[in-house]
């Protein structure tokens, strides 16, 4: 965007093909619009972008480092490479790291067959994880009347944190701890069931890409997530303002 808030139209190259973009779009948005496949996990349309999962890394001509497509704004004449051997290798490795971090036992997970992590593993051609599994010990918080939090499945994408803060405005969720010890918490690391600030809206559950957050009393097949409401919600809110 220019200083006076005017939106411009740019032309850029994605994998050698010319595409047009609005100056307020990210590289990821333009790629998706034009049906280029770029894997993502922390990104969700309707939430702020944080560039944390590092799956959407792309090459931009003239840039020494790889850039996350979700937080990189388009610019005139930009040349983006969405996939090559190096990027594919990094994406695979990053996904393998996610698998190795917690206890992702797909076969007995509430999100089996409708999990973004599981989907991506197949899409990226991962049939085994080369880095050793860490098998950490994590508890399950089932104190909430409607929902369950299972840290064993969490990938720390922080979609729950952002949706609760940015959309619901409750900010029940946050992250505590550093590095490999980091985990999502409700309120000041209190059981979810005792969180007075939780409005029980279930947005966090519906944006969770994996089986970390799920609804109680539903079978695996029923535990599908519905995150399509977000872009509508944010768009309608913008119109009102």
């Amino acid at each position: 965007m220019t200083a006076n808030g005017q939106i411009k139209i740019f032309t850029l190259k994605i994998d050698g093909k010319d595409v047009s973009a609005r100056s307020d779009q990210t590289v990821l948005q333009v790629c998706r619009e034009n049906e280029y496949f770029i894997p993502t996990l922390c990104h969700l349309e309707g939430l702020s972008n944080i560039g944390a999962c590092r799956l959407c890394m792309v090459e931009v001509a003239g840039q020494r480092k790889l850039l996350p497509a979700c937080t990189t704004m388009v610019s005139e004449g930009m040349e983006v490479t969405t996939t090559n051997d190096k990027l594919a290798h990094y994406r695979k490795m990053t996904l393998e790291l996610i698998f190795s971090e917690r206890n992702h036992t797909c076969s007995v997970c509430v999100s089996n067959n409708h999990c973004e992590l599981q989907y991506l593993s197949q899409k990226l051609g991962i049939n085994h994880i080369r880095v050793p599994y860490r098998f950490p010990k994590f508890a399950v918080d089932a104190s909430h009347p409607y929902f369950i939090l299972d840290h064993n499945r969490c990938i720390l994408c922080t979609r729950c944190v952002r949706v609760c803060d940015e959309i619901e405005g409750a900010h029940v969720w946050d992250v505590s701890g550093r590095g490999i010890q980091a985990k999502v918490i409700t309120e000041l690391n209190q059981p979810w069931g005792s969180a007075d600030t939780c409005t029980q809206c279930g947005k966090c559950v519906n944006v969770c890409p994996v089986g970390a957050l799920s609804e109680k009393g539903r079978s695996v097949a029923e535990n599908t997530k519905r995150s399509g409401f977000l872009p509508y919600l944010t768009a309608r809110r913008k119109e009102k303002i």
Binding site: I50, G51, A52, C53, R54, L55, T94, L97, I98, S100, E101, V131, P132, R134, L156, V175, G177, R178, G179, I180, Q181, A182
Partner: peptide, 21 residues
């Protein structure tokens, strides 16, 4: 580096722990 990683991005959070192992 592992214990000082903030834990936000995957390569640093998990990668440093794996390298340490």
């Amino acid at each position: 580096c592992m214990s000082e990683s903030c834990g936000k991005c995957v390569p640093c959070r998990v990668g440093t722990a794996q390298i340490y192992d």
